[in-house]
Nucleic acid binder design. Structure first.
Lengths: 145, 145
DNA sequence: CAGGAGATGTAGCGTAAGCTACAAGTCTGT
DNA sequence: ACAGACTTGTAGCTTACGCTACATCTCCTG
């Protein structure tokens, strides 16, 4: 086994954050979707979410169980899914983020289709500082150009 | 159970892509790290990666097993980790992406620290179209302001 | 050249997220 | 009011990615 001089360090927390982000990503996607579906159709069923995310209803069930455990939703067997106060807050927050990132990408000149796709992936990994910059940029472009 | 008029659709592929992205994220992070460590110190050991990502050496082992299975690295018991041609290509590609995103965030006016943190999370979710726009923007800012 | 320190490997566990197949509930139309 | 369609729930499997504890290997040093 090779060995080496002074074992350099680089204990970066970036990856720690990335891991944490992943844990909450799904929760955010779900509450956002639930809010949107309820708004559009009056209530949200398991099947609606399964369709939305293109996964089986089983995966949705388990996700909902976690969301319930974490206090974001309320749901009873064979009943529709409701957001709790905490879940609603998270949904609003997520939707805001999503919109800002989307607007930003458009302002950057990215095509509508790609902007929609990328926003989905990016929204969970943007810090509030960067989000502010993105918002400023989007507004700037909107008022100027 | 509530029912509803015409069951609306929205089978979006965004989440499908996000899922796919996640699958390759770790691979990209690893090959990028391996390339960097080899470049800096001559070879890359399991411990180096464990330190880098702040995970146990066991997690690194398993990740390496997957990378090996997928043809990105070569490694023999108790020996250092090498990138294959395919792994090197992926590493270069990832590093490019990373750099562009980082430069872009700096150009956007994000603080150095946040830019480094966010680049880590964002790099895996940026399409090539958006990446081109980011690159153009960064270059623009660099030459103008 | 023998030990011990440090690196690596293995066993076994946990959670998250996906699946299929099957069971059970609910709703709607006749 | 009941049959069939649709929805929801449950059992049990898979893979990825974390972990601790313990075993083994390597390398350096006395």
């Amino acid at each position: 086994m090779p060995s080496r001089s002074p074992s350099r360090r680089q204990a970066d927390n970036e990856h720690l954050r990335t891991r944490r982000d992943h844990a909450s990503e799904l929760a955010e996607d779900y509450v956002e979707a639930i809010a949107e579906i309820v708004e559009r159709t009056g209530f949200c069923r398991v099947t609606d979410l399964a369709e939305r995310f293109a996964v089986s209803h089983v995966s949705v069930n388990r996700a909902i169980a976690r969301l319930k455990r974490d206090g974001f939703v309320e749901a009873h067997p064979y009943g529709p899914v409701h957001l709790t106060a905490s879940g609603s807050r998270l949904a609003l927050h997520s939707r805001d983020r999503h919109r800002i990132v989307l607007e930003f990408l458009r302002a950057l000149g990215v095509s509508e289709k790609t902007a929609a796709l990328d926003a989905e992936g990016l929204e969970h990994h943007v810090s509030s500082e960067t989000l502010r910059k993105m918002k400023a940029f989007a507004v700037d472009r909107a008022t100027e150009g």
